[in-house]
Design a protein around this nucleic acid. Structure first.
Lengths: 341, 341
DNA sequence: CTGTTAGCGCCTTCAC
DNA sequence: GTGAAGGCGCTAACAG
């Protein structure tokens, strides 16, 4: 039933020539006579010959597969990154092995392990939100598997990564708020384990003084990004003696949770308190009271860029090279103001 | 630099035994002496020996990889399915190759081709919305690669699939509406190329008469699921002489587009017109005016089930079997009423 | 209990 | 121009 797949040997036998000739003919090797080339190619086509990739992978010690590990697909942000990754990979004939860490460090470790065993040629990784031990990444280095991190970057040096340039975005939204006379500006930041949280905080602290606004650390609260934690954070902010009039949230998902919570407390969104945010999710277009503005982080492009770097590293890896240049690419971000009717 | 990875041969040499002994020892073969087993295992551990999967794939003619093709990840519905797939696959030591068709038939074909060449052991597929030619699926059958379709099923026979049982859900929501005195119930259905559209329509046409409601085909319009097309569909419905008071939408995404459009027309949602829908997306919890109810389709479970079936088929494929039983699994659906404050 | 051998499909020197 | 031969790492049938 399962018609056995044709092999080089099969073709060789039928044509009464050697396997190597067939191989060369199919690769259009110059030293093969035009006539034989044609005969080989024709028969190959007839038989629907497809080289056995597993044999090639084995032989070449390369799988043309890259592993992608990210927290979860359920956010459009990551889904868009995956699309960017996929498109570049596809173009270069690589396939994509996918693994979600579900924001769980253990799971992340296991997925790394599986992918290593599957001999992926390289990996793209965005950290689980509380990954603190980097042993599994060090391991990859030892195995000489190149890794490019994206969006959620570990606090290691000598790594490749792509991420959004957040300082600019933060400046823009704070400028935007100040221009609209907001001066009591709070922030719901992400967990300290994320570099992105640190960067947001730094940018926040640098930007406010430029507008002669004093920093009040009571105005900065933290959410671990879960809805519950965000509500908790909101509660803290609303309990402040001097209640903030504007809140910057870590991203739009946090903003959505925060806004929903605020509404329950009868707070009029974008009247009593207004929100600005990061990541500019399309879903916000469906909200009645979206954040006034959000910083577009170009996830698709980030995925593309990360993949380009990775594929380049993989290629370089083929030649032996004392590669010591680390790619650290920050993608431009840009504030987008939402039209509110 | 790149410390070459240890092989069976390496271990054998160091221990002065044969490769096969090492292989068997590592596989805990009964015929190997306890002493040698221990020595082998210890050295293997010391050297950090990891079997070369590419060699095993090659040898066994199996990659322990399944390919997943779906329209796009950006909808939570599919993302949830992927999670279900991933979890089952992971448990059984399979990895997941991912490909988005972007609802494009050509792209779908190309992805099928790549995955076939990568020798995936089986595939899980959800159709691009206007795939009409099934040649690429027939091909897989010829190559003896098992396929289980999910959610978006081709109109072929002799296929395996999982999908939601929609009739029950449709009955429930129509019952729900009738109970609330709605009798002029329209529907924005999906494109005719999808089996799921056909099923919704049939269920709709069967269910209405049970409540002594006459069917008016003018009340049934079609969206190709794009926001524009949904607006177009809404426009048609709003232009009806006898404007509907309730609208059933193909899924929550369509509902969201429809609701947004209606709002722009100053229609009061769930007052002038109310909406009910399918797929019960969590995102609706953030809307001020969500559909009154939505049919939960249990995507995660659908992914799980499809994968279980596929893995079973893959196993059976190993033995030679005249397998002719086709799995057609309909997963129960259930209407969920949204709390509206 | 353990070793020998052959071979999976392909690529790549080396020889003619 | 073409062929022969070896080997990638692992498994498994066959011999002891």
């Amino acid at each position: 039933m399962s018609t056995k797949l044709p092999t080089l040997k099969e073709i060789a036998k039928r044509l009464n020539i050697s396997v190597s000739t067939v191989s060369r003919a199919l690769h259009n090797h110059h030293s093969i006579g035009l006539r034989t080339k044609m005969r080989v190619n024709q028969l190959a086509a007839e038989l629907n010959y497809e080289p056995n990739q597993t044999a090639i992978f084995f032989k070449k010690r390369k799988t043309f597969t890259i592993g992608v590990i990210l927290p979860h697909l359920s956010q459009d942000f990551f889904a868009a990154i995956v699309s960017g990754i996929e498109d570049v990979a596809f173009r270069k004939n690589f396939t994509v092995l996918l693994g979600q860490s579900r924001d769980d460090e253990e799971r992340e470790k296991r997925v790394v392990e599986t992918m290593k065993n599957h001999r992926v040629d390289g990996m793209l990784i965005s950290l689980a939100k509380n990954t603190s031990d980097y042993g599994h990444f060090e391991l990859l280095k030892k195995y000489n598997i190149p890794v490019v991190f994206f969006d959620r970057i570990p606090k290691m040096k000598d790594i490749h990564y792509t991420a959004s340039e957040l300082a600019v975005g933060m400046n823009e939204i704070i400028g935007f708020l100040v221009k609209r006379k907001f001066r009591n500006i709070a922030m719901i930041n992400g967990p300290g384990s994320l570099l992105a949280s640190k960067e947001r905080l730094e940018a926040y602290m640098k930007s406010l003084p430029r507008h002669r606004i004093k920093i009040d650390m009571g105005n900065v609260v933290i959410s671990n990004l879960s809805p519950e934690s965000t509500c908790q954070a909101m509660q803290e902010l609303l309990a402040l003696k001097r209640r903030p009039t504007a809140i910057i949230t870590f991203n739009d998902y946090v903003a959505m949770d925060a806004i929903r919570y605020a509404k329950k407390q009868k707070i009029r969104i974008n009247k009593d308190i207004c929100f600005v945010s990061f990541s500019n999710q399309p879903i916000c277009n469906y909200l009645d009271d979206p954040p006034l503005a959000s910083v577009e982080q170009f996830p698709y492009e980030q995925g593309e860029k990360a993949t380009e770097i990775l594929l380049e590293l993989i290629e370089k890896n083929d030649e032996v090279s004392p590669d010591t240049i680390f790619h650290k690419v920050l993608l431009q971000s840009r504030m987008v103001v939402h039209e509110i009717e």
